[in-house]
């Protein structure tokens, strides 16, 4: 007895055929998983979008009625229009507010920069619903904001802008999605070599000129990511309009959501989803055009 026995055969050798097989199979799984779990459901959705509901059951008979309804139904058209407006407004406001925040993050010293980064990152760690409820408390006819405005005598009656409505959805999305604007812009600013800014100053440029001729053009890739992130997340959201939208705060996401719930019209919901994907694709295609000229590599 005494000495423990070591079984060398059970230790796989580095780079052995066995290990190579294991790696290969993992690689295959890594590729198959997204294909199966994303492309699969998408195909099913695509097929379902050509069906209809008959006697509480989905019948797939490959008709275009759902797509015709999207284009013909004035209510649906109006909701799509308002959703696009909310999406564009959210993307613009987030990016306009996020840019100075990101710029501040870039120029602050390391300690304050970290603090600011944490301040923007903490909301990302919180539950989405909690964040929306937080904003919801502020909004409404008797919400904190309107209450304060009335009590301080600044307004004589509650402002519609701060009620649970279409505006509420916009305000909530803007505040919830702000980190998705700040961080991409910060990353693009942070990647600009300090020597470029020094070179511009060396050639006589003022701070303002350096910003508009060097820093801003070279941060456009971050701006593009910020605009697409916030736009795509805003138009697809259904929880925010559900919780703070009130009776008139309908958006595309909320309508899709209802088709799979109370509305029970999966084919129409699927068709709306496909339609939304088309909007997102167009938005992404447009965003790739927002970049500095030349070939920027750093």
């Amino acid at each position: 007895m005494g000495h423990p026995q070591v079984n060398f055969r059970k230790t796989p050798e580095l780079g052995s055929a066995r290990e190579a097989r294991l790696i290969n199979s993992l690689v295959v799984i890594a590729y198959i998983l997204p294909i199966a779990l994303i492309l699969g459901p998408f195909c099913i959705f695509f097929v379902v979008s050509f069906g209809r509901v008959e006697a509480s059951a989905v019948v797939i008979d490959f008709n275009l009625s759902n797509y015709v309804r999207i284009l013909a139904d004035s209510t649906v058209r109006m909701v799509i229009g308002r959703t696009l407006v909310i999406g564009i407004a959210t993307a613009l406001v987030c990016t306009l507010v996020g840019f100075p925040a990101a710029y501040l993050m870039k120029i602050l010293g390391p300690t304050r920069r970290s603090l600011l980064m944490v301040a923007f990152a903490v909301p990302l760690l919180m539950s989405y619903v909690i964040k929306i409820y937080t904003v919801r408390n502020l909004l409404g006819t008797n919400g904190v904001i309107n209450h304060f405005l009335m009590a301080s005598g600044l307004v004589s009656q509650p402002l519609e802008f701060f009620t649970l409505s279409y505006y509420g959805v916009f305000l909530t999305l803007t505040s919830v999605l702000l980190p998705f604007a700040v961080f991409p812009i910060f990353l693009s600013l942070d990647r600009i070599p300090a020597s470029l800014v020094e070179a511009a100053a060396d050639l006589g440029a003022s701070r303002t000129r350096i910003f508009w001729t060097v820093i801003f053009p070279l941060s456009l890739s971050g701006v593009a990511v910020s605009l697409t992130f916030t736009f795509v997340l805003a138009i697809g959201d259904f929880i925010t309009p559900e919780l703070v939208g009130g009776p008139n705060g309908f958006t595309l996401g909320r309508i899709i959501f209802s088709q799979f719930g109370l509305g029970f019209n999966w084919p129409f919901g699927a068709a709306l989803s496909i339609f939304m994907m088309m909007i997102v694709t167009v938005a992404l295609a447009l965003a790739t055009r927002i970049r500095p000229p030349g070939k920027v590599t750093f």
Partner: peptide
């Protein structure tokens, strides 16, 4: 590193 403006 020359510090040429890559977008110009």
């Amino acid at each position: 590193d020359y510090a040429l403006f890559p977008h110009m």
